Amino acid sequence: MTEDVKAQKFSTLFRWFDQNGDGSLTHDDLRQMTELFEGLAREDDKENAAAMRNAFETWWRLLLTHGDSDGDGQISRQEFIAVMKADVTDPGHFEEAVLAIVDALMRALDTNEDSVLSQSEYVRMYDALGVPPVHSAAAFRRLDRDGDGSLSHAEFRTAISEFYLSDDPEAAGNWLLGPLDRAD
């Protein structure tokens, strides 16, 4: 059961990353994701845009180095799920790839320096990243653990960590990209 939960989450992530929808991930797919994320930063916020770009490049190198089992320069869904479970979620790799993106994203979005995202900011962010507002609004309600109407940096980091690391099918972070029961 727990392996199925992670496979579902990573399959959802794969669909999100597969920007051209061809069933495999390429460097171009991750570059397009990078551009979406960078587009959330203000034009003059070069530091956070660069941090996100560098983290996505780290992630791509991890996928290619540890996941491209057939050496074709592309990552299939099965390769992606395997490398996510074994390597990307390794604590050192997770911090330098996934959480580095989260931290730069929060800094970029926190233009008023209040250290939180409102529901409208959160929904707008995920809408720009291609996640339907109906899913991100539902996710926000689950992720706002203290019920104060905003997500702190810590709450957002917890949600991301749950999505990638938790075996619990009921973990709130599982909702980041929408429901997991969607068909592949």
Rank of each mutant, 00 (worst) to 15 (best):
I160N: 05
S76P: 06
G92P: 03
S150E: 06
D144E: 04
S150A: 14
F156V: 04
D144W: 14
M84E: 02
T2Y: 13
T26M: 04
Q32D: 07
K46V: 15
W16C: 01
A183I: 10
N20M: 10
V134F: 08
R124Y: 00
A100Y: 05
R124P: 00
W16T: 01
D167E: 06
S69I: 09
S166L: 12
I101W: 13
E96M: 14
W59S: 07
D167L: 14
T111Y: 08
G71P: 04
T34V: 02
A108T: 06
S152I: 09
E96V: 15
A139M: 08
K46I: 15
W59C: 10
A51W: 06
H153M: 12
A7Q: 06
H66G: 13
R157T: 12
L105D: 01
A41G: 10
A128D: 01
A55D: 01
H93Y: 09
A138K: 13
A154Q: 14
F140T: 02
G173V: 15
D28Y: 11
E170Q: 10
F17G: 04
V98Y: 01
A7C: 07
S24C: 11
L165Y: 02
D144F: 14
L117W: 04
A49H: 03
T65G: 12
E3R: 12
D28M: 13
V102C: 09
S161W: 08
D29F: 07
A183T: 09
D18V: 15
T89E: 03
H66E: 13
D146F: 11
K46Y: 15
D22N: 09
P91F: 15
L180D: 03
R124G: 00
A50F: 15
E43T: 10
S69M: 11
D184T: 11
V5R: 08
N174Y: 13
G178T: 02
M52K: 04
R31S: 14
L129T: 00
R15V: 15
E35D: 13
A171Y: 03
P132Q: 08
D184S: 08
M106E: 03
Y164K: 08
M1E: 04
L177E: 01
M125P: 03
